[in-house]
Nucleic acid binder design. Sequence first.
DNA 1: GTTGAAACAATTACGCC
DNA 2: GGCGTAATTGTTTCAAC
Lengths: 144, 144
Amino acid sequence: MDRIDEQILRLLKGNGRMTSSEIGKHVHLSIPAVSERICKMEERGLIEQFSVKINREKMGFHLLAFIMVQLEKPEHIQAFRTVIQEHEQILECHHIAGEYDYLLKTVSRSPSDLERLISDTVKQVKGVVKTSTLIALSTVKEER
Amino acid sequence: MDRIDEQILRLLKGNGRMTSSEIGKHVHLSIPAVSERICKMEERGLIEQFSVKINREKMGFHLLAFIMVQLEKPEHIQAFRTVIQEHEQILECHHIAGEYDYLLKTVSRSPSDLERLISDTVKQVKGVVKTSTLIALSTVKEER
DNA sequence: GTTGAAACAATTACGCC
DNA sequence: GGCGTAATTGTTTCAAC
């Protein structure tokens, strides 16, 4: 992980489909040299995966909300995690320290859709005793 | 945006470098047909960009924290946004409704690094009157 | 949408330092 | 271990339909 690898990562972050020859022009390396560096970074787990950023607005998800969840007892964690993993509108779930136990990042099509997500999905999980929802009005920055 | 486009998006989400020929085998379409669909989704803005998911842990960022920020007056927003955009450890910034005005998703190398981020960067911005930090203990799900 | 030819990029094998 | 060159293989692009 040297200076050149960092440059390659920066380039790939901006365009995950950039060709090795194009990257090579930036870092002054041959095509096989660039390919090998990318492969090695994948092997080491530094590069987790190549992906696409999808515009959620254009997919109909107009609402971004953060839901903080209080879980009563640790015995309900497994059921909770299963629900989280299976729900496509729950993008992120972090175990956090503080008054609440989990912080969820969610997307919804409408306020009523968010209502369903909170009432029918999150609060339906055994052990969920309290939630607090933060609605995003706009997004200033989002490095996904 | 039909059934096939959805399938293509799902495949690209899992592997942004999947070839059109490979995608074609899944959706039973020829290579130019797949390429054209991907191009059209890029033109429409549905696909924002191709990217790469980098393992933050392996990059030395062991701490994930959410910082909620209260901004005194709207006249300080521009300066605040500039700081946000320029700081690489601030991954996300959402304008939110509620007691706090902004929710920041941040990464740090260590607790002292997070301390610097809060004290020397965020609180240094004019108009920032209050912050509240949620430390992530672990991440259950993160669709980036 | 498909097919096929041309252009392009990646992979492999090899030699080099 | 890391790099470059050149041949091979595979992929995309571009036409025509």
